[in-house]
Design a protein around this nucleic acid. Structure first.
Lengths: 156, 156
DNA sequence: TAACAATCGTTATGATATAACAGACTATTC
DNA sequence: GAATAGTCTGTTATATCATAACGATTGTTA
């Protein structure tokens, strides 16, 4: 269990290593890491916050990479499907994954004041959600775990 | 921790007691349980599944209780605010609370095949979400915990 | 290079949600 | 019971989020 979302870190390394990791993964898995997909991931890594699809589309427009919603949504679908980007249901927005390549079930903490989002990891099928599901005979395939509140800075 | 969502039960009692509980709560707290609000809750209790706001609005329209989106959204805002109804973020939909009146942090299990939704309870600030938040110094105000998968029936 | 699959660009539309404001109702106070 | 403050409703308009469909293009493989 870890969380770097609210901590200081070398952000330029985030971007470079994020892209490199995904690039390698795509080569290994014969996936097409096309210009639009790459750019959308870069934008999300650079911004380091949750962006709406139309916000991303605005960047793409400025750069001549696409101007219609499906362009952004298709790139996002690809990135989400392969775990490079996560969708934050509470915000209808997207954020770059902090652990690309690793299998994981993310937990998000969303600050209602500064809108920052931190990603942490939990073990699947453990904890209360796992207990509840076992008791009900429910087979979990995917989880959405998002907490809304105040980040350390905004509590001060 | 309990879950009655996937189990058989006397559904007519659900509706009656749900309405009665909320009615009493509203009297105690000087809240106006208006016809539209009451009817929206009844619809959600009767259907016993997650309904979109526009689906609810269709019922209201048929009954002459309102025809424009704000009518449905306002009633839902009220019901959600006071914990009589929960919003399922994953579905952009609403479902009647199975434990009205009690303070709680719900967990939902959503069947992707039959679309049924079960509500269970967890302790706030315990389990992995609590651990993660404490480690990050994050102050939780609200949580969204939703699992998607297969209910007992649909696994067969 | 032919055949096939994946991706892209575009148009159109669908689905979800809220701002704003006037008018009606309710509760409270005098 | 009249004034008034607060809440709720009805309506118009619009904002925001998301996808269906289809032809053109590009990439992959045999």
């Amino acid at each position: 269990m870890d969380s770097i979302g609210f901590a200081k870190h070398d952000h330029s390394r985030c971007i470079g290593s994020g892209i490199a990791t995904v690039e390698a993964y795509c080569q290994d898995h014969r996936l097409q890491f096309t210009p639009v997909r790459r750019r959308v991931l870069e934008i999300l890594l650079q911004q380091h916050r949750a962006l709406g699809a139309y916000e991303i589309l605005d960047y793409l427009r400025e750069e001549g990479l696409g101007s219609q919603p499906p362009v952004a949504y298709r790139a996002l679908d690809f990135l989400v499907k392969h775990g490079f980007v996560h969708r934050i249901e509470r915000l209808n927005a997207f954020i770059a994954c902090m652990h690309p390549g690793e299998t994981h079930t993310p937990v998000f903490m969303i600050c209602r004041k500064c809108a920052s989002v931190a990603e942490a990891q939990r073990e699947p099928m453990q904890g209360q959600l796992g207990e509840v599901a076992r008791a009900a005979g429910f087979l979990i395939e995917r989880t959405v775990v998002e907490a809304e509140g105040l980040c350390p800075k905004c509590q001060a």
